[in-house]
Design a protein around this nucleic acid. Sequence first.
DNA 1: CATTAAATACCCCTTTAAGGCGATTGTATA
DNA 2: TATACAATCGCCTTAAAGGGGTATTTAATG
Lengths: 207, 207
Amino acid sequence: MNIAIVEDDPLLRENLKLLLSGEKNITILGAWGSAEEALPAFKKLSFDIMLVDLGLPGMSGIELIKKIKEGRPEIEIMAHTVFEDRNNVFSAIKAGASGYILKGSSPRELIEALHSLYQGGAPMSPKIARKLIMEFQDEGASEEYLLSHREKEIVKCTENGLAYKEIAEKLSISPHTVHTHIKKIYEKLHVKNRQEALTTARKKGII
Amino acid sequence: MNIAIVEDDPLLRENLKLLLSGEKNITILGAWGSAEEALPAFKKLSFDIMLVDLGLPGMSGIELIKKIKEGRPEIEIMAHTVFEDRNNVFSAIKAGASGYILKGSSPRELIEALHSLYQGGAPMSPKIARKLIMEFQDEGASEEYLLSHREKEIVKCTENGLAYKEIAEKLSISPHTVHTHIKKIYEKLHVKNRQEALTTARKKGII
DNA sequence: CATTAAATACCCCTTTAAGGCGATTGTATA
DNA sequence: TATACAATCGCCTTAAAGGGGTATTTAATG
């Protein structure tokens, strides 16, 4: 199977190349340090799997995954990263990653994961798998508890058309804090303004 | 009956005092030029009717009516103004006015209206009365047709989170025009931003 | 014919919203 | 004890929204 690597740490990048090249059935078609470098090269390249770091400088790994999947959905994506928080995991999966391996994993695990991915599996580190099943176990709960109590209070205020200042007064906090909360809310809901936040919140039954 | 007057035009204020003082059964307890001056004086004053101009400088007559009715709902309010537009009429009535006399009315009419109000009536200039019954004849229609076709289109666009520019493009008009329409919409719905407009529009079944 | 409303467009200006930074405190927990 | 998260406050910037005018054209209506 043909693999393309995108990893910004030069040392790790070379180590991955060496490690994987030694495996039978695995061919490394190249390794790049950023999405910006990789994308033009990919245009003339045919491969089966992209092994990608999420914490890239410039365009993020998530964005890169989206772009690849848009144009060439047949390519399997293996996310390889230190991030194990909810947002990164789910963003990567939604973007199109089918494998999610943490950087603490052993070489053996990584190689097995790549084979598994190639054969149609969805290999991921135990921690990540646990997060996924928890998400399904909790069902709506995870959505409901996505926003903290304070954040939900603020969403309800914005629903009534209150401005930052007015919310601040009502809750007896600084307008700056309101701003911070709202930024966090938008981030969590993957939206970029009030209208979207409110429609999303309604859809998820948060408010 | 004891009457308090709030009227910012000094000449008219004095004329009203002279005119009404001459009537039997009417006592003028005072006349003030603004809500800000009148409110403190009212605290130590007991009266039956407040004759109030809607177009006061500073706090509006509407606001003054609200404040009076909140604390002392037994006081009858006579709105006395040049405004005969829908918004002012309904705002005054919603705020708690039971009489609504236009400034063009004759002294005789005003005095009769005050007596009528004191006896539990709801005296108002014929033009105003007509507006009121039309509102009831139209029922829901008046709400639905409150906004013009174009305005409703624009409300629907804002519901989808579109910016002025985007709405302008979609409808092939200038962003300035969108701005103008939205100002008009806010005025009609008595709101001051998108969220309020949307909640109000939903409540009234406009969208 | 005069008035009114709707739709269009432009001007000025101030306020808000939102993104990107950083930073501290307290609490819970792995 | 380190890590994460929630909640708090701050600064800076740009873009958008909103409030105040004015003005023209067209259509309907008293």
